[in-house]
């Protein structure tokens, strides 16, 4: 995955570039908004990571300008402003995700990977998600594992649907709260973990191979362990 990091703080940028490279991605760096705009315009990036407050051209204007030229490269906004309306403004400007500073790198990485996947598959989502012997039919609202049908509550279904949609990718707790419950605050408790462990009880109990994996210090991932 090719990433462009637009960040004026040299130390933070160097850290991000290094961390993304260690995670196996190609990361370029632009130190201000105009430079970032020039590099992003050249294209070829899978995801843009844009700081909101930048010299010369601020992050929101950068994204807005790109969108005006029908450049749909997914963009994640990093911001020290983390209030309710700041997020809304960021997304309204054309950002695809918004992460308040300070953040955990694992959170940023998980979100960027999900964004890059979105770019890779613009086609319609499949009706049935399959991971190993686990199947989720989005139209029939049916979940089966092998021959067994698994009965899920509506919210458990949406939780599994989101996990399976991003199978093979790390999904963080805040991403789950955002996408399954549509809240953006930090619940500060293990409320998401309890939901996942309930789901796990229905999906993985009695089977040899677990489907839902806990990624330490990051979140969860659905994948076929074999």
């Amino acid at each position: 995955m090719r990433l462009l990091i637009v960040e004026d703080d040299a130390e933070a940028a160097a850290y991000l570039v290094k961390a993304f490279r260690e995670a196996g991605h190609v990361a370029d760096h632009a130190a201000d908004g105009l430079e970032g705009y020039g590099m992003a315009e050249g294209g070829g990036y899978d995801v843009l990571v844009v700081d909101r407050m930048l010299p010369r051209l601020d992050g929101l204007s950068l994204i807005r300008s790109l969108r005006e030229q029908n450049d749909t490269t997914p963009a994640l906004i990093l911001s020290a402003l983390a209030q309710v309306d700041d997020r809304v403004k960021g997304l309204r400007a054309g950002g695809d995700d918004y992460l308040p500073k300070p953040y955990a790198f694992s959170e940023l990485l998980a979100r960027v990977e999900v964004l890059s996947r979105r770019r890779g598959a613009p086609a319609a989502e499949p009706i049935v998600y399959r991971v190993g012997d686990l199947q989720l039919d989005r139209l029939a609202h049916r979940v089966t594992r092998g021959e067994d049908e698994i009965v899920l509550q509506p919210r458990e279904f949406r939780l599994l649907e989101y996990l399976m949609k991003h199978a093979g990718q790390v999904v963080t707790r805040t991403m789950l709260l955002e996408n399954v419950w549509d809240y953006h605050f930090d619940p500060q408790t293990n409320v998401i973990d309890v939901h996942v462990s309930r789901l796990r009880g229905k999906i993985d109990k009695g089977f040899d191979k677990p489907m839902i994996h806990t990624i330490r210090g990051a979140g969860y991932m659905v994948r076929d362990a074999s």
Binding site: W181, T189, V191, V194
Partner: peptide, 9 residues
């Protein structure tokens, strides 16, 4: 929705 979120907890 919120009650449902906290019910397992």
């Amino acid at each position: 929705g919120m009650a449902e979120l906290y019910e397992p907890l």
